[in-house]
Protein backbone atom coordinates (compact mmCIF):
# COMPACT_ATOMS: atom_id res chain seq x y z
CA UNK A 1 0.00 0.00 0.00
CA UNK A 2 1.58 3.24 -1.06
CA UNK A 3 1.32 6.32 1.11
CA UNK A 4 -1.25 8.88 0.14
CA UNK A 5 -1.95 12.49 1.03
CA UNK A 6 -5.28 14.29 1.09
CA UNK A 7 -5.64 16.94 -1.61
CA UNK A 8 -8.21 19.74 -1.81
CA UNK A 9 -8.40 21.96 -4.84
CA UNK A 10 -10.86 24.82 -4.55
CA UNK A 11 -11.41 27.87 -6.71
CA UNK A 12 -13.26 31.00 -5.69
CA UNK A 13 -16.36 29.61 -7.41
CA UNK A 14 -16.44 25.98 -6.33
CA UNK A 15 -14.72 22.90 -5.04
CA UNK A 16 -12.85 21.21 -7.86
CA UNK A 17 -11.21 18.17 -6.35
CA UNK A 18 -11.05 16.53 -2.98
CA UNK A 19 -9.49 13.14 -2.35
CA UNK A 20 -6.36 11.09 -1.75
CA UNK A 21 -3.34 11.18 -4.02
CA UNK A 22 0.09 9.64 -4.27
CA UNK A 23 1.74 12.70 -5.69
CA UNK A 24 0.84 16.20 -6.79
CA UNK A 25 2.60 18.40 -9.32
CA UNK A 26 2.06 22.13 -9.11
CA UNK A 27 3.55 25.17 -10.90
CA UNK A 28 4.99 27.08 -7.95
CA UNK A 29 6.43 30.53 -8.44
CA UNK A 30 9.99 29.31 -8.16
CA UNK A 31 9.48 26.29 -10.41
CA UNK A 32 7.47 23.13 -10.64
CA UNK A 33 6.88 21.31 -7.36
CA UNK A 34 6.38 17.59 -6.95
CA UNK A 35 4.70 16.90 -3.64
CA UNK A 36 4.71 13.49 -2.01
CA UNK A 37 3.02 12.51 1.27
CA UNK A 38 4.67 13.79 4.46
CA UNK A 39 6.17 16.80 2.74
CA UNK A 40 7.42 19.53 5.08
CA UNK A 41 4.94 22.40 5.72
CA UNK A 42 5.20 24.93 2.91
CA UNK A 43 3.29 27.92 1.57
CA UNK A 44 3.84 29.33 -1.88
CA UNK A 45 2.11 31.20 -4.64
CA UNK A 46 1.29 29.41 -7.86
CA UNK A 47 1.80 30.50 -11.44
CA UNK A 48 -0.79 29.86 -14.12
CA UNK A 49 -0.34 26.32 -15.36
CA UNK A 50 -1.14 22.71 -14.90
CA UNK A 51 -1.73 21.01 -11.58
CA UNK A 52 -1.57 17.24 -11.86
CA UNK A 53 -2.92 14.96 -9.16
CA UNK A 54 -1.60 11.40 -9.37
CA UNK A 55 -4.19 9.23 -7.69
CA UNK A 56 -2.54 5.87 -8.50
CA UNK A 57 0.27 4.69 -10.70
CA UNK A 58 -2.12 4.45 -13.63
CA UNK A 59 -4.56 7.27 -12.97
CA UNK A 60 -3.97 11.00 -12.74
CA UNK A 61 -6.13 14.09 -13.06
CA UNK A 62 -4.87 17.25 -14.73
CA UNK A 63 -6.28 20.70 -13.89
CA UNK A 64 -5.61 24.11 -15.23
CA UNK A 65 -5.31 26.91 -12.72
CA UNK A 66 -4.82 30.60 -13.41
CA UNK A 67 -2.69 31.20 -10.35
CA UNK A 68 -3.33 30.92 -6.65
CA UNK A 69 -1.89 29.65 -3.41
CA UNK A 70 -0.59 26.31 -2.23
CA UNK A 71 -0.38 25.13 1.34
CA UNK A 72 1.28 21.90 2.36
CA UNK A 73 0.82 20.18 5.68
CA UNK A 74 2.36 16.71 6.14
CA UNK A 75 -0.98 15.02 5.46
CA UNK A 76 -3.05 17.70 3.74
CA UNK A 77 -2.35 19.65 0.58
CA UNK A 78 -4.61 22.60 -0.18
CA UNK A 79 -4.63 24.48 -3.46
CA UNK A 80 -6.54 27.75 -3.53
CA UNK A 81 -6.90 28.53 -7.21
CA UNK A 82 -8.10 31.85 -8.58
CA UNK A 83 -9.91 29.83 -11.20
CA UNK A 84 -9.49 26.15 -11.88
CA UNK A 85 -10.74 24.01 -14.73
CA UNK A 86 -10.48 20.30 -15.31
CA UNK A 87 -8.15 19.89 -18.25
CA UNK A 88 -10.70 18.17 -20.43
CA UNK A 89 -13.11 21.10 -19.92
CA UNK A 90 -10.70 23.68 -21.28
CA UNK A 91 -12.35 25.33 -24.20
CA UNK A 92 -9.68 25.11 -26.84
CA UNK A 93 -11.27 27.56 -29.22
CA UNK A 94 -11.68 30.16 -26.48
CA UNK A 95 -8.09 29.68 -25.37
CA UNK A 96 -6.73 30.13 -28.89
CA UNK A 97 -8.89 33.20 -29.38
CA UNK A 98 -7.66 34.71 -26.13
CA UNK A 99 -4.08 34.02 -27.19
CA UNK A 100 -4.53 35.67 -30.56
CA UNK A 101 -6.22 38.69 -29.01
CA UNK A 102 -3.47 39.14 -26.45
CA UNK A 103 -0.81 38.84 -29.15
CA UNK A 104 -2.56 41.47 -31.27
CA UNK A 105 -2.70 43.88 -28.39
CA UNK A 106 0.96 43.31 -27.63
CA UNK A 107 1.94 43.77 -31.27
CA UNK A 108 0.10 47.08 -31.51
CA UNK A 109 2.71 49.26 -29.88
CA UNK A 110 0.68 52.42 -30.27
CA UNK A 111 -2.32 51.36 -28.27
CA UNK A 112 -2.62 52.67 -24.78
CA UNK A 113 -3.52 49.47 -23.06
CA UNK A 114 -1.89 47.99 -20.08
CA UNK A 115 0.94 45.75 -21.29
CA UNK A 116 1.28 43.87 -18.05
CA UNK A 117 -2.29 42.64 -18.10
CA UNK A 118 -2.17 41.72 -21.78
CA UNK A 119 1.01 39.78 -21.23
CA UNK A 120 -0.56 38.01 -18.31
CA UNK A 121 -3.56 37.06 -20.42
CA UNK A 122 -1.31 35.76 -23.14
CA UNK A 123 0.63 33.70 -20.65
CA UNK A 124 -2.58 32.23 -19.25
CA UNK A 125 -3.90 31.31 -22.67
CA UNK A 126 -0.63 29.64 -23.59
CA UNK A 127 -0.57 27.68 -20.37
CA UNK A 128 -4.15 26.55 -20.94
CA UNK A 129 -3.31 25.29 -24.39
CA UNK A 130 -0.20 23.56 -23.15
CA UNK A 131 -2.16 21.80 -20.42
CA UNK A 132 -4.68 20.63 -22.95
CA UNK A 133 -1.97 19.42 -25.32
CA UNK A 134 -0.27 17.39 -22.65
CA UNK A 135 -3.57 15.97 -21.59
CA UNK A 136 -4.29 14.82 -25.14
CA UNK A 137 -0.82 13.33 -25.56
CA UNK A 138 -1.40 11.15 -22.53
CA UNK A 139 -4.48 9.88 -24.31
CA UNK A 140 -7.08 11.55 -22.10
Amino acid sequence: MTMTVHVDIVSAEKEIFSGLAEMIFAPAELGELGITPRHAPLITRLNPGEVRVKVSSTESYPFFISGGLLEIQPNVVTILADTAIRAKDIDEAAAIEAKVRAEEILADKNSRIDYASAEKQLHQAIMQLRTLERFRKRGG
Binding site: A12, A28, E29, L30, A40, P41, L42, I43, T44, R45, L69, Q73, P74, L80
Partner: peptide, 29 residues
Protein backbone atom coordinates in the same frame (compact mmCIF):
# COMPACT_ATOMS: atom_id res chain seq x y z
CA UNK B 1 -3.81 17.53 15.51
CA UNK B 2 -0.85 19.57 14.41
CA UNK B 3 2.54 18.68 15.75
CA UNK B 4 2.99 20.56 18.98
CA UNK B 5 6.71 21.02 18.56
CA UNK B 6 8.18 24.24 17.23
CA UNK B 7 7.58 24.37 13.49
CA UNK B 8 7.25 26.85 10.68
CA UNK B 9 6.40 26.84 7.03
CA UNK B 10 8.87 26.95 4.22
CA UNK B 11 7.94 30.11 2.33
CA UNK B 12 8.56 30.46 -1.37
CA UNK B 13 9.74 32.95 -2.54
CA UNK B 14 9.87 34.66 0.87
CA UNK B 15 7.69 34.97 3.94
CA UNK B 16 6.68 38.60 3.55
CA UNK B 17 5.42 38.35 -0.01
CA UNK B 18 3.55 35.11 0.49
CA UNK B 19 1.98 36.18 3.77
CA UNK B 20 0.94 39.57 2.40
CA UNK B 21 -0.77 37.84 -0.47
CA UNK B 22 -2.35 35.12 1.63
CA UNK B 23 -3.63 37.37 4.42
CA UNK B 24 -5.10 39.94 2.03
CA UNK B 25 -6.81 37.11 0.19
CA UNK B 26 -8.13 35.79 3.47
CA UNK B 27 -9.70 39.08 4.50
CA UNK B 28 -11.18 39.55 1.04
CA UNK B 29 -12.65 36.08 0.98
Amino acid sequence: QLSSRHWDYIYEPDAKEVLDHLLTRYIES
